[in-house]
Write a protein that binds this DNA or RNA. Structure first.
Lengths: 203, 203
DNA sequence: CATATATTTGCATGGCATGCAATGTTTGCT
DNA sequence: AGCAAACATTGCATGCCATGCAAATATATG
């Protein structure tokens, strides 16, 4: 049974989402820089102090709370013995299948990012937690000696996933399960660029 | 002749460095969280207001001001016609050869990062400006359609460079010109992981 | 229902960051 | 050298950000 069985847990989740939603609504209406934490708290119907109980700052409220990769998935990965990339993307697929991704919310975020590109670094930073977990996965497979490469690979995968999720939010005819497929395509294109050169096209 | 010909420019550079140095000194002595912008300003011998004329916040002062890639290098890249990776790393080599890298400063930063891993994201964020410039280089070569891959590749390269620079600061017998060589090695290992699989070792 | 455990809230505090206008310094020109 | 324009530094005032603490409120458990 998930941790959301108790009323308290459900409310906490709900309030977190309500604050994020309020932040997105206000940011789209007034511009992110123009809004204050007090406004957000008022819009979400909580006290300022409660706002800070949920998020460390405005930026965090924009991104919302992203759950960690389920220990069950990590356990599966450590047992799996396929090619590294196959197992990694399978683990990411299962993670996304948890259903904690709200298309409408991501769509709002994407809209905001297009209107205010200076916010993009906030979202890049929010991928760091995922990247960190991917590093754990990769080093559990390749050993500590491969940590430098694991960190680079994790950076690559998390950003590819972020990009794919934004693509998914934009096109209604893309299923959730295609996110990792798209991410993998991009990663493999990068692999080709690294591996085979990519000479300048004749002009 | 560089832009540092005039006294004013030299002073601006000098003050910027002095503030960064003061920030590092204090952060190593007291811990980054424990110090205030007022302390930094006092230690650097400037007013608080001047501190904010140089850096937007404490974090930026820690990283210092990183110069952009010289337009001359960008021009060279756009004319070059070798394999993409060769030309990219050559451009990065030339950029680093500008000599704006102070080993002792980087060493202090590395020490600080080991003692306070929670600061690592600050440095990751500081690589974003470089990543952005790499995106420009890559799309100038491959065209706008390759932007998604260009962004991933840029992320990869900038992080690889960041890692290599930290390695360089730690070992006295590593020359500055070997930074890009090391970065490239790591990138190619990642390429191998992507391209050829990297099966789980038998246990 | 009673108790233990979480959560929300208000208040007080101190750091962060910016605009503005006054003052001081450098530059380039005559 | 002397002057005016451009630029840099500073103090002050202001308002937002973020946290600790303790009282009040809500939920869980038995």
């Amino acid at each position: 049974m998930p941790a959301s069985s108790t009323l308290r847990d459900r409310r906490r989740l709900q309030t977190g989402r309500e604050i994020q939603s309020a932040t997105l609504r206000l940011a789209l209406r007034e511009g992110f820089e123009a809004i204050t934490t007090e406004m957000i708290a008022a819009e979400a119907g909580v006290s300022l102090r409660t706002f800070f109980n949920y998020y460390a700052n405005k930026e965090a409220a924009l991104v919302g709370r992203r759950p960690e990769i389920d220990p069950g998935i990590i356990g599966w990965f450590e047992i799996a013995s396929g090619p590294l990339m196959d197992d990694l993307f399978e683990a990411l697929s299962r993670h996304l299948d948890d259903g904690h991704l709200n298309r409408e919310t991501i769509r709002l975020i994407s809209t905001l990012l297009e209107r205010s590109p200076e916010l993009v670094p906030i979202f890049h930073a929010s991928l760091q937690k995922l990247a960190c977990q991917i590093v754990s996965l990769v080093t559990s497979r390749l050993g500590e000696t491969a940590r430098p490469e694991a960190e680079l690979l994790a950076e690559l995968l998390s950003h590819a996933l972020g990009h794919a999720i934004r693509s998914w939010s934009q096109s209604d005819d893309m299923s959730e399960s295609e996110i990792t497929r798209l991410a993998r395509q991009h990663v493999e294109k990068v692999g080709a660029l690294i591996g085979y050169g990519g000479e300048a096209p004749s002009r």
